[in-house]
Design a protein around this nucleic acid. Structure first.
Lengths: 248, 248
DNA sequence: CGCCAGGTTGATTTCGCTCAAGCAATGTGG
DNA sequence: CCACATTGCTTGAGCGAAATCAACCTGGCG
């Protein structure tokens, strides 16, 4: 469950050397010197995960951080009675588990591969050395963490002030940035990477409520859903959904 | 609105020199060298605020950070239609506005003195110099930010999974740590520093609901409220309120 | 004295949850 | 290849929690 040697692609197979990593510029690592990067390459461990596979589990001690090399990872949190909510999605070029590492706590969330994906693991000792050696790296993390904090506060604020309808509209608009294909006629099509259940949990509602919500959106011509495909005929109507709530 | 010279206590009046600050050990500044602290003392501006006075306003550009020297500051966020919710309270020895500074954004919240209190302002340029000069300071901020992020995620999670009732019990228990006076008989008395409206906004409900909630707690013998004074006859009953919710 | 903000209370409505059933797609074993 | 379980999603009926609307009370203050 934690390590499956057969799945592991050996490091010397080429690509995953940080230098050639296509995400390099987007990650915190971009401030590292060549020597530091070389050090990192020598210490990190790349590994491939299957869809649905757990990367780390809520409550585990945090032994290091992960860097998403390709595809997407879901961040989940479980409550004691077993149902999980999806707190966010991490894409290639983002770092995972840094909050627990930095706060010096155990993991508060689980991370799970949403598709087949490959991650690099950087153990705590290595990271500590890098942070100590290059202050800019710390500042990079600081910025990322501060941004994440702002988003988390937003989420709380929205959860107590907005209706689920508006929250869903928000979610769709966020998804649009990554999955949306806009057409000239103001229409939008996207293929969501999530099940209904996960969609529901992201805005904090029961799956049944999500179903009904989708139904209402369709009845009102705001958006049409078939499987994971979404069609929004007129984007501005979806936008209005948010505006009207803000002013109401 | 931003600076009122008449209220400003001159720095040379004694106390506020960081060296003698009773909060020193609790703040991020404790990692500064003597020279750096001296630099900080020379650059910071201490100022007194009246109860209810605004320290900075949501949407303002972030020109620096504030360090709470004494008493308490409320962190509020307003939605477009004017009602505000209280996101948290900052006490002496904590730093304010660092999120916006670090994320390089404008303030997302307003800060308002809940009592008469005095804060030190450290302008962005000074802070930048300190951060650049002493990597440990950045790591201090990093830890604090990471912790705050964890708390914010908790808050969101709780707002969607717990009932109002449980959230209120949580809030009371948090308040207990600072304001509670426990008696031998298992009882607890505290003087809350907040109006009903603010209490309500902290758990994301309308004031009317807060009234009813309080009523229910009294009817059930869980806690008794008179003005801002709260009496909890048996603490463990309040605790149970949280337990039962977690297991339910 | 009258005003006003903050707080309480009641009546009503709305929203989202629970429980329960049904359905389609997928998988499994014979 | 078919009967059968399983899983994810949808739908309906009923319920309960919290919001809304509205009235009223209270204490502070001009």
């Amino acid at each position: 469950m934690t390590q499956a040697p057969l799945d592991t692609e050996p490091d010397d197979s080429g690509p995953p050397t940080c230098f050639s990593c296509p995400n390099r510029e987007r990650t915190e690592w971009c401030v590292l010197t060549e020597a530091e990067t070389k050090f990192l390459v020598g210490r990190k461990k790349s590994r491939r995960y299957l869809p649905g596979e757990t990367i780390y589990r809520q409550g585990d001690p945090c032994n290091g951080i992960y860097c998403v090399e390709s595809d997407m990872v879901g961040i989940r949190r479980n409550d004691p009675d077993g149902n999980s909510i999806l707190l966010g999605i991490a894409y290639e070029g983002t770092i995972l588990g840094y909050r627990s590492y930095l706060a010096d706590e155990e993991h508060r969330c689980s991370a799970e591969a949403l598709k087949a994906c490959t991650l690099c693991f950087i153990d705590a000792a290595t990271l500590r050395q890098l942070l100590q050696g290059n202050p800019d790296l710390g500042l990079q993390f600081l910025k990322r963490t501060a941004r994440a904090l702002g988003q988390a506060e937003d989420k709380f604020f929205q959860s107590v002030t907005l209706t689920i309808r508006t929250r869903f509209a928000h979610l769709l608009l966020v998804m649009k940035d990554r999955y949306g294909q806009e057409h000239d006629d103001g229409g939008l099509v996207m293929e969501l990477p999530l099940s209904r259940q996960d969609l529901a949990s992201m805005i904090g509602v029961r799956p049944e409520s999500m179903s009904r919500l989708i139904r209402r959106f369709e009845d009102e011509g705001i958006a049409f859903f078939s499987g994971r495909r979404v069609h929004v005929p007129r984007l501005h109507i979806l936008m209005d959904e948010i505006q009207s709530a803000d002013l109401a």
